[in-house]
Design a protein around this nucleic acid. Structure first.
Lengths: 147, 147
DNA sequence: GACTATGTCGATATATATGGTCTACAATAA
DNA sequence: TTATTGTAGACCATATATATCGACATAGTC
């Protein structure tokens, strides 16, 4: 039940872009440095986010990537969906046909509830929420140093 | 974010035992057949459940396995914990020391919420609940055939 | 138009996890 | 003592995760 690095790095990359884009795109190289992710690996993680329209890219000098839509409209459930595939813990929850006993299986009902619980959390959080939380945390952090 | 066959098969095996033990243990071979799991593979899945005390084994002729405690006391969160390890989607949720930025990381807060949501579901369901649900389903199923 | 900065894409490599088989062995009931 | 059952652990094939590298496409700048 682990999230792979794709989901983790990808979410962090999106948040990085959201925090640092001021009318100009953010370079992959810079994100990689700031988030301590290998540049080449980051490219592979960015690709599906571009394809899904969550990010936009600009090639050439002074290029980079920027958000594909406003951070209020980027919901975490979609991010995870794009990077990890369906959030379901077990295939049969999405498609009963993969198992002949699906219609009478009570463990399937449990996995369905688990999926709903996870989806509920991820659907309730947008990138904008993360941006605000991050700013709050950094403010608190800098205050702490003065104590 | 997928559950491996260990978690799935193990849960089904436990339910199978709960449904079929009547004062006598259930043979691994029989569970394997009924649940369509390879016997040898099932042995590997049973082992940690025995070690955790969720199952008890009896060797020799007419041996088999039986529940290690009453089904009302077997909570699914423990089953999954034993079979899959911690339910956390990301290591840093359980142990902040694995990442130096854990204290200021907002994505970590998200994964923490996700873990809580999953745990909430799994902690609320016991093996006894599954037994009852299964019996209800089968009753409904047999009724359906008469319509 | 040449040059440079930057993202894109595909091939490849390595490590780890998954899912499973097989054999030898230990315990116990009949 | 023998047949029956679970136990333990070595072994293996495949898939997936986690990268790395190099060649290429595109877009600014001079």
């Amino acid at each position: 039940m682990k999230l792979s690095t794709k989901g983790r790095y990808g979410t962090r990359a999106l948040l990085d872009v959201a925090l640092h884009q001021d009318n100009s795109p953010v370079q992959l190289k810079v994100i990689a440095q700031r988030q301590q992710i290998s540049l080449h690996y980051l490219e592979h993680i960015i690709a599906p986010l571009l394809a899904a329209g969550l990010l936009r890219s600009t090639r050439g000098a002074y290029g980079g990537i920027s958000l594909g839509k406003p951070p209020q409209e980027i919901v975490l459930s979609e991010v995870i969906q794009v990077l990890e595939g369906s959030i379901t813990p077990v295939e049969c929850v999405d498609d009963p046909n993969v198992c002949s006993r699906a219609h009478i299986c009570v463990t399937r009902d449990v996995w369905t509830d688990v999926k709903k619980a996870m989806a509920g959390v991820l659907e309730s959080i947008t990138l904008q929420d993360l941006v605000e939380r991050q700013k709050d945390k950094q403010k608190l952090e800098s205050t702490m140093y003065y104590i």
